[in-house]
Design a protein around this nucleic acid. Sequence first.
DNA 1: ACCCAGGCGGGCG
DNA 2: CGCCCGCATGGG
Length: 295
Amino acid sequence: MMAQQQVLLSKKEFNMQHTFESAQPLTFFGDYDKKAGIISYPYAGVMVRVGRNGRVVGDYSNLKKAVEADVYRRFRAWEDIKDVYSKIGTDPFIEGGINEYYGMRLTHNLPWETTLTFIISQFNNVKRIRQITKRLMEVHGQPVFSTDGAVAGKGIPDQETLAHATEESIAKCGAGFRTKYIRSAAEYCSYSLDLEKLGKLGYEELKAELMEIDGVGDKVADCIALMGYGKLEAFPIDTWIKRLIEAAYFGGKKTGIAKIHEFARERWGEYAGYAQQYIFWYGRNWWKKWNSGKA
DNA sequence: ACCCAGGCGGGCG
DNA sequence: CGCCCGCATGGG
């Protein structure tokens, strides 16, 4: 990948807190120092630190270009979020989400870390997904270093490592019944499928390839396509999205997955994934607040 | 105690 | 095909 010129994200176009907390793969690892306004995440053996303006914090010397290019891609820094809003702001519901979570960006993470975290996400809750991922990193990840050379944490365990890890060591991280999927997916992505090579495929082809991975179905494949490959037309449909779309656009009527995919494609087209993220985070949080009697 | 969580694979009709 | 069921764990 060629070195990208770093584009600074203004405070308004990049709301770090919303982006970090919005339950994307990015939020499943690293850390967020709210007071200092710095996100940390492991990449290429170092702990990358990013400030509120999207600028890399610290001196990465010879890794500088690589780290900056990763930040550029990870936060989609080339993208003017106002353009996105003009495409997805089709109605008051989505506009409510844009208003409440202004500056929440989609992130474009690495294929394997996205695959792993979203396999863990099935039939699970956000808090526990983070917890399981964190434990897997601690047990099976390689050390990553801060700019002063000290060990700053562990990275996402790679496919090969998990392919050779015992089921017991994965299960102990809390993975439960997903343990066999993690092992199987790690083996498949080590020896039978090169995730890096799938990037050149179009969305439909990519999704079909991803669904060959054990433990990856329609929803997780869409999450990987969206947040691991940057395919913005992907529209992951989980229980929240199904419930919210039915409530907001189908008059509360039960609607099949295929029908919802079709609806999203027609309504939001190439930006459906962005619409999904705002519907998910806004709708879910609103719903929870309402049901706890605080809305 | 009981219920549910960013689904999936397998088995059945 | 479509539907339905079980599934490990842990927090509310």
